[in-house]
């Protein structure tokens, strides 16, 4: 089905010249991407320990305060420190994004391996299931599911993973099908090695680089999707600091205090940009022959 080409194009959109990650440092854009990714990861891990203020503490005397030395990005409608909220939101948004990527990767890799390895009827059946899941646009399905199931971390991650595993399954199936024909796999087969060992020792490792590239790009998408659901009101619920929820809070004051929605958006965009570019770097470094 045609949907698979979109992903292939994404993976193959590189220009075919193999470049190492180190070489990528010479390009200012790519160096910037690595720096962004490092900063975002640091913020997600250490952010909650170095907050200048409590992100949930309201102070009505500071409503809509302008940025100052002590409140770097100003204060929101309830006088909460915007900088602290964005910093605390890094863990929520990026953390949830990581969980979504890990879950959808896991489902996709399992299904892809089974389909590619078993082939035949099972492959056909699994790929038709993939087609069915792909027929519902991702955000729409995730939003509906998250909305129906109600708020909660598990529901959010479930909704986004169950609507996002298909591209991993397609990728892994394709690679597995071609690797299965290689001599070393056939040799293992002839030596009487059990199927499960062949899958885990020989077929799975062949997929790791391509899946990592897709997962890096997928993380950018997942962070945007988590915040999109937060923004629509079906994701993380206020007052918990999450970038999409911060945007939703700020939206009502867009005319009087635009900075409340501009800064969280910049955080989302830089994160997505960083991981998208990192995905490009990894693709150029690892994946020229796919």
């Amino acid at each position: 089905m045609i949907l698979s080409t979109s992903f292939k194009n994404k993976i193959q959109a590189g220009d075919g010249n193999k470049r190492s990650v180190l070489q990528a440092m010479k390009n200012p854009f790519r160096l910037a991407a690595l720096v962004i990714v490092a900063v975002v990861c640091l913020a997600a891990i250490a952010g909650p320990y170095v907050l200048p203020h409590d992100p949930l503490k309201t102070d009505l005397s500071l409503r809509f305060a302008k940025p100052s030395f002590s409140y770097l990005l100003g204060n929101d409608a309830l006088g909460r420190c915007l900088f602290s909220r964005i910093l605390a939101g890094a863990r929520t948004s990026v953390g949830l994004g990581c969980m979504v990527v890990v879950c959808s990767c896991f489902i996709g890799v399992c299904i892809g391996l089974i389909a590619g390895y078993r082939g035949g009827l099972i492959d056909e059946l699994l790929m038709r299931i993939v087609d069915i899941f792909l027929s519902l646009p991702e955000i729409i399905a995730a939003m509906t599911l998250a909305g129906i199931m109600g708020p909660g971390t598990f529901n959010l991650v479930f909704a986004l993973s169950i609507t996002g595993w298909m591209r991993y399954a397609r990728l892994v199936r394709g690679i597995t099908l071609s690797v299965k024909e290689r001599e070393y796999v056939k040799a293992a087969w002839i030596s009487g090695i059990p199927g499960i060992v062949i899958v885990l020792r020989h077929l799975l490792p062949a997929n790791i680089t391509a899946v990592s590239v897709l997962a890096t790009i997928g993380l950018a998408k997942a962070v945007i999707a988590v915040s999109a659901l937060g923004f629509l009101g079906f994701g993380v619920q206020p007052p918990a600091p999450e970038w999409g929820t911060l945007l939703l809070d700020g939206k009502d004051y867009i005319l009087s205090a635009p900075h409340l929605s501009v800064y969280p958006g910049i955080a989302i965009m830089l994160t997505a940009l960083g991981f998208n570019l990192l995905g490009d770097i990894l693709r150029d470094a690892w994946l020229t022959e796919v």
Binding site: P258, G265, A272
Partner: peptide, 9 residues
């Protein structure tokens, strides 16, 4: 990378 909800705002 630009979230369209933010671009709109």
């Amino acid at each position: 990378s630009m979230p369209n909800y933010w671009l709109g705002l």
